[in-house]
Amino acid sequence: MSPAFDRRGLLAGLTLAGAAAAVPALAARGTPLLRRIGKPLGVQLYALGDAPRTNLPGTLRRLAGMGYRDFELPGFYGRPAKDLRADADAAGVRFGSIHLALPARTPPGSPSLMSSPQELADTLGALGVTQAVLPMPLLPDRLSFAPGGDPRAAFVAAVEAGGLDMWKRLAALLNERAAALKPFGIGLGYHNHNMEFRPQGGTTGWDVLLGELDPRLVFIELDLGWAAAGGRDVVAELRRLKGRVRMVHVKDIKASTPTNYALQQDPAEVGQGRLNWRAILPACVAAGVEHYYVEQEPPFTRDRFASMQLSADFLTRFVG
């Protein structure tokens, strides 16, 4: 066998091997992204308004029929954790996370972020949940609401009055609570809105908070829609926070949304707004995101379940 033949055989073999390797690669490229990375489609039940409170079993079943499997609770809906878990089990879904408020914003009888670690471990354990998220910054126990005015204005005014020191105090609280919960197997995170991104003294509350948080203790649940409404490049933010963003709220906004820091946005179903999901979703994967929770703010232009269906359709088919 001549050396020339050997070379031709080697080249042919490499070509065939390369073609064989390309087949699964091409197949993978045609597989929807969430299925390819083995992550379930999730939803924050806040987006469904009063439906989960009045009929949680029916709500979970309808959403499960759309492909949602990972559910984040906005609270306990005034019900025992074991009953919530029973509804999820019956629908064939799971709760992956829950939002816990501070005592002043927690309904009577429900655990808050400041409940004892043992109480939270017992309650969340009954839910099957090991991750909790604080969804708002520190606010006064009492807020002044103007008669007939927009209640969002009171929240924004309180955040602005707290200055940068409030974000430092918030970081200290989160670090302390996370350290107390860690021995009980509970992870703690923080969820942003767009108030965090208001420029203050050459920085922002967001950057102060991130600088003060212990990344070994506190993870980030990045709300992509609110970050975009606050003027952030979402892809750049995900890259900057690689390894710290455990969850995202997959939220879209219309092009008419101005950059603002006052809880304002023009909401859209995922894939119907201005966010560049072809760049954002792969950036989420690269950042190490584990939970993808669809959320949408009111006002809705159609039935809320119809909106969740549109977002699910987009995400379950998205290849990237």
Rank of each mutant, 00 (worst) to 15 (best):
F155Q: 15
E290F: 06
N55L: 08
G185D: 05
A101V: 12
A22E: 03
P267W: 11
P103F: 07
F71L: 06
Y68L: 06
R232H: 06
R35G: 12
N276R: 15
R142V: 12
I253T: 09
A22C: 04
G30M: 14
A21M: 04
P3S: 13
P111F: 02
D207M: 03
L164N: 00
A283H: 11
Q272I: 11
P282M: 00
T259I: 13
Q272F: 14
G92P: 05
L48M: 07
M247E: 13
E221Y: 00
D266V: 10
P151C: 09
V235T: 04
V93D: 02
F95K: 03
V245Y: 06
R240E: 15
R105I: 05
L138C: 04
K242R: 12
M308I: 15
A255Y: 05
A236F: 00
R53P: 08
G30T: 08
P80S: 00
I98N: 10
G243C: 07
S97A: 12
D50Q: 02
D233A: 02
Q296K: 12
Y68R: 01
G96S: 14
Y293A: 07
I37V: 14
P3A: 10
T15G: 07
S110R: 01
A126M: 14
P282D: 04
H191K: 06
A312F: 01
Y293S: 03
E212S: 07
A12Q: 12
G185C: 05
G163T: 03
F155L: 15
G13A: 05
E295G: 13
Q131E: 07
H191F: 08
Q309I: 14
A27L: 11
R216C: 08
A228M: 09
D233K: 14
A172L: 04
Q265R: 15
N260S: 14
Y46G: 03
L181K: 15
D233R: 09
V248Q: 15
T59N: 03
P137K: 01
E295S: 06
A153P: 05
T301Q: 13
T106A: 05
D233W: 08
I98H: 11
R169L: 09
F318D: 15
Y77S: 02
T257D: 00
G38Q: 10
N55M: 15
A262N: 13
I280T: 11
